[in-house]
């Protein structure tokens, strides 16, 4: 018989990650959920889930990456619950101050990304995770992260050239 060993995580460890990275969690969750209030709610729910499920944490990946996965899923769930069928304008809410040309290119680029790629981009630029952290959070290979970002960057370059033309 094969036994699965669970390292588990303590409430204190989870709280430490919460306090240290709350702004980044809220920022990424907001981008996915479509509004700051939903993003904030998703983060609170995600950490509550992490506390509840802490004994199932295996310890085979960094705890923070494990929590990121929960936050992404929670934000996605909130968005799906509330905004099913919404356009990406809701993800990148309308500007109150006009749009710079480069913002338009980035907005256009993000809107065109498939969902999984978009999550990679959010984790890279909102969460500041490295390739390994992103791979863990999304349960994909490091090579996939690298290739995804490379493809996304190529698409953005094209988008910028189109906007500037």
């Amino acid at each position: 018989m094969k036994w699965m060993a669970f390292r588990g995580a303590s409430v204190e460890e989870i709280e430490k990650i919460y306090r240290r990275g709350l702004d980044r969690f809220v920022r990424a969750a907001t981008a996915i959920a479509g509004s700051e209030s939903r993003g904030s709610d998703a983060v609170q729910d995600a950490f509550a889930s992490a506390v509840r499920a802490r004994r199932s944490f295996r310890g085979d990946v960094p705890l923070e990456a494990w929590i990121w996965r929960i936050v992404i899923n929670a934000a996605h769930r909130v968005r799906g619950d509330v905004y099913e069928g919404a356009e990406l304008d809701d993800v990148f809410a309308p500007s109150t101050n006009g749009n710079a040309v480069e913002d338009l290119a980035v907005r256009r680029w993000v809107a065109a990304l498939p969902e999984r790629q978009r999550h990679v981009v959010f984790l890279r630029y909102f969460a500041g995770l490295d390739y390994r952290g992103i791979a863990t959070a999304l349960e994909i290979e490091v090579g996939t992260v690298s290739a995804t970002l490379a493809a996304a960057h190529t698409a953005l370059r094209r988008s910028i050239q189109e906007v500037e033309r």
């Binding site: 702004d23 980044r24 920022r27 907001t30 981008a31 990148f92 500007s95 710079a100 480069e102 913002d103 290119a105 980035v106 907005r107 981009v121 630029y125 909102f126 953005l156 910028i160």
Partner: peptide, 12 residues
């Protein structure tokens, strides 16, 4: 560019 645009569109 991405970082700056994200900073403007979604400040921390």
């Amino acid at each position: 560019l991405i970082e700056e645009s994200f900073e403007r569109m979604h400040p921390v």
